[in-house]
Amino acid sequence: MRTEDLIDALADKVEPVEPLRHPAARAMGWMIVSFVYLAGLVWLIGPRADIADKLAEPRFVIEIAAALLTSLMAAIAAFCAGCPGRPLWERFAPFPFLAVWLATLGEGCWRQWVQSGPDGLTFNIDLDCFQAIFLASILSALVILVMIRQGAPLAPMSTTGLATLAATAIGAAGLRLFHALDVSVMILVWQFGSVLLLATIGFLAGNRYLKWSLPKIDGGDSGHRQTG
């Protein structure tokens, strides 16, 4: 087909489209849905017994805030990655908050080492933690994975990796409200480790999940075809 004929065919089939809202607005919408889900989950399972005391601890509040900011910035970054022409640095926006989150957990490990020596870093297998993060993140993950498909698949791996990071980080923050586990090394390995593992799986699945959906022009068919 001649390119000029292709232009005619594309112009013929153009339909009104709603421009995507700003990435920050979309991220806020997603966060509200995730908060409602987590609130429902905390209400269903019941908050941890010492929740009032924990919320009075600055370290606990900083840890939760860092996880929530990581989630928010990762969601904004994932939506920005699907908008052509936006600056590349936006994709790295969640990492300072991720570093603060990691630092609060590292500081907790160091404090327990100083207080109790090597015994303070006792490490057990806790697969419940992984399952709880999965449960706390699943709806947020499904919603954001649907939302990122509205964008352009310019950087599929970064987009799905950031989206999964956003979902698992908010799940980890919610988990701290109903899962009474305060041993820093356990949180570091099982909660933070689960977040990184799931985000890595999301990153690796990017090329399979996000593909270009191009209009099918020949024969006047209005369907779409997918290309890598």
Binding site: M1, T3, L6, I7, L10, V14, V17, E18, P19, L20, H22, G82, C83, P84, Q150, G151, A152, W212, S213, L214, P215, I217, H224, T227
Partner: peptide, 17 residues
Amino acid sequence: VQDILMSVHSVRHTFDP
């Protein structure tokens, strides 16, 4: 070029006016 034109068409909603 044709691939780019079809890509532009498929993601035209991502352009922020």
